[in-house]
Amino acid sequence: MATRKPRDRPLRPWFSSGPCAKRPGWDPGDLKGAFVGRSHRHPDGRARLREVIERSAHLLGLPPGYRLAVVPGSDTGAIECAMWNLLGPRGVDVCAWENFGHTWLADVTDQLRLPDVTVHRADYGRLPDLTRVDFTHDVVFPWNGTTSGVRVPDAEWIPRDRTGLTLCDATSAVFGMDVDFGKLDAVTWSWQKALGGEGAHGMLALSPAAADRIATHRPERPLPKIFRIAREGRLLDDVFDGFFINSPSMLAVEDVLGALDWCEQAGGLPEMTARSRRNLATVAAWVADRPHVRFLATDPATVSPTSICLTFTSPTLDALPPQGRHDFVARLCAKVEAEGAGYDIAGHREAPPGIRVWGGPTVDTEDIALLLPWIDWAYAETEKEFA
């Protein structure tokens, strides 16, 4: 491992896992045509929101009959909108193996207080036993564990003839990896992840079965206004046709339209997922050559190509108490950031001590390759301090 201080820095040293790096070539001037100072309910404003819906559905290849809406509150608002509207008629199985899965579990048990809940839990770095999930129940799970770097390898574990609904938080998977939408009934994501858009806006896709559930199920619980996508036993069609429940940022809308332009021009969804795979391959080759670095994911089939989570091991580190390991990583990340070589690479505060490098499609592989020597240098310098 080379420990000499590198000379070359990433051209775009932004590796945050959310909000994520803007698309290559992004410039604030791209927003000059935004529909600002006007009502988003004007036909021209609504047309832009409708365009986001239609182009997103087309690029992702949503199955026929699926409905897509822009909703408030980023991915959090979208997945909670789905849970508050859909859950209750059946038992619920919740799969939780990292911070956000645990958050949705707390929603189901502590906020919705549903009586029949089965939990499938695993430690950071692992998946629970998915063969034990009961699909006569509704199932809540993240496709990709953003804070653990552990994803489901595919959707083969989900039956097509299920009688319950599948509610999937897919925010760090959509546009960055292959997602089988046909196995999912409520799918959520945000613009700030793989598209590098701005925060506060979410996307909610519903299968025909989920739409039927909303039309027939009236939750006894109160629904906040921003979750009200049905009325008197029917889905509100306007919400899926560019009507926003409260007031969106039209700057953010303009920004995501530019991101969709870039996605289309770059080669569409196949090129987006290919960019993520190339980023992961670059990191994987680096990890393979370093005995003190490993993926947090223990199964290679579950390693995320977007939220790439890594942990360190060495005699020096292994002798440290948990807080000492956190301090080690904090110093390492501070060294990289002070050199302008990589921002926001620290792992999530709830995850085991380590780093997290966003490898989604808005990140260039060349920048990932230039970041890695800086991590080598910072690791060596930090280990000297703790030796």
Score class of each variant (00 low, 15 high):
Arg278Trp: 03
Ser276Leu: 03
Trp14Phe: 15
Trp104Ile: 11
Asp161Phe: 05
Ala57Trp: 09
Asp44His: 05
Cys20Met: 13
Pro224Leu: 14
Pro10Glu: 05
Asp30Met: 15
Asp212Lys: 14
Cys333Pro: 01
Pro219Gln: 08
Thr306Leu: 01
Gly268Asp: 08
Arg213Cys: 08
Leu68Met: 10
His58Thr: 15
Asp123Thr: 13
Pro64Phe: 07
Arg275Gly: 02
Gly182Arg: 13
Arg234Ala: 14
Met203Gly: 08
Pro208Arg: 08
Phe227Ser: 10
Leu260Arg: 10
Ile53Val: 09
Glu98Lys: 01
Ala211Ser: 12
Ala122Met: 05
Trp104Pro: 04
Leu112Phe: 07
Leu260Ala: 00
Phe244Tyr: 15
Ser190His: 06
Phe244Glu: 00
Val150His: 01
Val117Ala: 00
Trp97Thr: 01
Leu280Met: 09
Ala215Tyr: 12
Gly197Thr: 11
His348Phe: 04
Met177Ser: 12
Lys384Gln: 14
Pro300Met: 00
Met203Pro: 00
Leu130Asp: 03
His102Trp: 15
Arg356Asp: 01
Arg121Cys: 03
Tyr379Ala: 02
Phe181Val: 00
Pro352Val: 07
Asn144Arg: 13
His42Val: 04
Pro64Asp: 15
Gly29Asn: 13
Val152Lys: 04
Met1Asp: 01
Gly73Thr: 04
Asp299Phe: 05
Ala209Trp: 01
Tyr124Met: 01
Leu60Lys: 13
Pro291Gly: 15
Asp169His: 14
Thr103Glu: 12
Asp327Tyr: 00
Trp262Ala: 08
Leu130Gln: 08
Arg213Asp: 06
Val133Trp: 04
Asp344Glu: 14
Ile226Arg: 15
Asp180Met: 02
Met83Glu: 14
Trp377Val: 01
Glu339Trp: 02
Ala205Asn: 09
Gly65Val: 02
Thr109Leu: 08
Pro248Arg: 07
Thr166Ala: 14
Thr188Ser: 11
Pro224Arg: 14
Pro10Cys: 03
Asp138His: 03
Val293Asn: 02
Pro142Ile: 08
Asp161Met: 05
Gly182Glu: 13
Asp27Tyr: 13
Arg113Gln: 13
Arg46Glu: 09
Glu271Lys: 05
Ala230Asn: 03
Pro6Leu: 01
Gln265Ala: 15
Gly37Ser: 07
Gly73Val: 11
Leu114Lys: 12
Asp44Glu: 15
Arg278Gly: 01
Met1Glu: 05
Val179Phe: 00
